[in-house]
Amino acid sequence: MTVLLAFDLLLAASIVGLAAATLLMRDAFAMIVAFIVFGMLLALGWARLVAPDVALAEVAIGAGLSGALLLRTLAHLRGGGLSAQGGASVSAPTNGATQGINALLAGLATCALGLAYLGAPQNVPGLEAHVTDAMPESGVTHPVTAVLLNFRAYDTLMEVVVLLAAVIVVWQVERGLAETPAPALGTVYQGFARVALPVAVIAGGYLLWIGAEAPGGAFQAGAVLGAVAVLGLLSRHVRPAPAHRPLARGTFVAGTAIFALVALGVSGAGRETFEYPPAHAKTLILLIEAMVTVSIAATLAALFHGREPVTVATGKETT
C-alpha cells in the first residue's frame, strides 16, 4: 500500500514538474517532446484512477496525435525541418500581448475548474447509482459508452461538431498541394508499415467493437485509424489530391450527420431526442460510433495534413 502511495506521489509530482518544464523550456522542439511525455504520464495517472477510457483517449489523442500535430506545425514554422537553423533563435517568437491573453485565458480556465471543484457536492455518491440503474436500457454493457453515446449523447455530438469545425477552419486558412518533398524513410520503415498498418486498422476496429462492453470506443478507435492515416501521409503512401475533396468532405461530415439524423429520427411518437428504443439501442449506438470513428480518423488526418488539397494558380484557385 505504501509502495503504491509512493508511486502515486512520484507520478503526481512528475506530472506537475513536466507541466512546469514544458512551459519553461526555451526550445520549442524540446517543449513539444516534454508535452508528449506529460501526456503519457497523465494517461498513467488516469489509469491509476481506474479510468482506462480516459487514459486511452489521453494517450492516443492528447499525447500521440496532438504531439504529431504540434511537431508538424513546428516543422511548418521552421520551413520543413524540426531543428532550428544555424544561429536562428531557438525559442518560438513571443509576443507580450499574446502571452498576456494566453495567461489570462488559462488563468480563467483554472479558476473555473477550481470553482467547479469547490462548488461540487462533497462526499456524495455522485451519479453512479443512476447510471447503474439505467444500464439495462442503454443497449451496451460498458457504463462509459452508455453515458457518452446514450445518456449524455448531446455532449458527445458537440465534441464531434468541434472537430468538424476545426477541419473546416483549417481548410479555409490553408490551401494548396504539399510542396515539401517526401521524407526518405527507407526500406526498414516501408517493411514495418506493410506489417503494422493493416494490423493497426484491425486494432482500431477492435477498439470500436469492444467499446460496447469494455474500455474503448469511437474516439480511441478514431485516433488509432487517424494515426494509420498520418503514417500513410508521412511516407507519401497517401497523397491528398484535389479529386479526393468530395470524398473527404463527405467523411468529415458523416459522423455528425448520422449522429444528428439518429437523434432526430428516434424522436417523435412520445420519445425525446436521443431516446433510443431499447430494442435497437445497441445497433444505433454502433452505427453512430462506426461513422463517428471514420469521421474522427479522417478529420485528424486532414488536420495533420493541414491544408485543403487544391491546385492554387496565381492566387486564384482552379477547382
Binding site: S83, L185, G186, V188, Y189, F192, V199
Partner: peptide, 25 residues
C-alpha cells in the same frame, strides 16, 4: 504477446529512423 511483437517492431523501427536521420543530418 501481440502487443509485445508490435511494440518491439515499432521501437526497433523508431530507433532505426532516429539513427538514420541523425546520420544524414
Amino acid at each position: 504477446l501481440l502487443i509485445w511483437v508490435f511494440v518491439a517492431l515499432a521501437s526497433a523501427t523508431g530507433g532505426h529512423l532516429v539513427a538514420r536521420h541523425a546520420r544524414r543530418a
